[in-house]
Nucleic acid binder design. Structure first.
Lengths: 200, 200
DNA sequence: CGACACATGTAACACGTTACATGATTTG
DNA sequence: CAAATCATGTAACGTGTTACATGTGTCG
């Protein structure tokens, strides 16, 4: 939902053709994760479908230009004015995995955590090569710096969290956290009044 | 890609029916983000399609049970043995947004950042109510604690990152970072040798 | 009876991603 | 000519998510 918005925001700067849009997107996001070209045309079609962009004719060189609509401009405005809802946005894959793994009898969570930490550390080192120390000289470099920083901060947080989880696990005797499949079978039908009270 | 894996991992503990699967998932992930029931059946169909689970008959009460296959077990094993690839997994929505916004003439990135920080702070407060202080008493509570911790750490990292971005922006004169649409138009055809050298 | 939770399922959709086909143009 | 890039597009697929339809059993 963010590639789409980014492309629309770029389109808000002026008409672009597909390939150009990709170039703009890439340099504005540090080119660390280039966009597959096909996705551009894909997304443009969807933006058109939703009335946020429209085809605005062709170049003498055959470039197919696209322009934003009024509705599109309003959409960009809304996007910029409202925060990114981390909560709504998908689930935290790693958190889900560790939480589930911790409740699985016969699974050594500690091992899962170790594996993840090793991967995260490797990622952190890798990310260290990407970060831009000090003052970025131009806008492109700044974009790269900002995106790279995000990765570093996220991975660092991940590592801290993994430590925390280990602490939590350490406070419990060996595998006392495992959850067997619940044998409780809910009763069908409207819940009894006491049950409702107990659950609330 | 993680709801699917989680459900499969639970199925690895023994045959379950749909509704039961949801209950198991919810309590194992702290029930902070309950799963829509429909998604269960959806996912089960896909697991069957991929040969990782199969229908294993019905209850006398009409419950439709599902069981994991050998291939499914292998898949769970692989899942637990390999780290979650944060890199591969989608893009960082917020990072994308801020990076793009920072390069947009006519957009006040500082304002975008302020909005985001306010939302993040609110989320952090909200998350503070969810966290479980000290020792979790049972597995369910631990699961909730682990997931809640993940949120807190992620939001804290986000806030730190926002500070960092502001610092980076402060090092530049007002809006010197804005990127106009590039007027450079790439030349078609095979790149000249010098150009290739320059780009490499 | 009516409300409500349990329970199963279907159908559609969203976005992101990739693989593939096609062609024009320039360089070696 | 052959290779590589620019450029446009199509067609599928994956997961996650929601809305809806349908039915059963229980409690008030």
């Amino acid at each position: 939902m963010s590639v789409r918005q980014s492309l629309l925001a770029i389109l808000d700067q002026g008409p672009c053709y597909g390939y150009q849009l990709r170039a703009e997107f890439d340099r504005r996001t540090g080119a660390l994760r280039p966009l597959n070209v096909g996705q551009i045309y894909n997304t443009l079609d969807r933006l058109e479908r939703d009335g946020l962009a429209r085809n605005s004719g062709s170049d003498d060189q055959g470039h197919v230009y696209w322009e934003i609509t009024d509705a599109g401009r309003a959409d960009v405005r809304r996007w910029l004015d409202s925060p990114v809802a981390r909560t709504t946005t998908g689930r935290d894959e790693l958190a889900m995995k560790i939480a589930v793994a911790a409740t699985l009898p016969g699974v050594e969570v500690a091992e899962v955590i170790r594996t993840q930490r090793a991967a995260s550390l490797a990622l952190l080192e890798e990310a260290a090569d990407e970060i831009v120390p000090g003052r970025a000289t131009d806008a492109e470099e700044l974009a790269r710096a900002v995106v790279a920083d995000a990765r570093v901060f996220a991975v660092e947080a991940e590592l801290r969290w993994l430590d925390r989880v280990e602490e939590r696990l350490a406070q419990h005797p060996e595998h006392a956290l495992a959850l067997e499949l619940s044998t409780e079978r809910p009763k069908r039908g409207r819940p009894a009044r006491d049950a409702a009270v107990a659950a609330g």
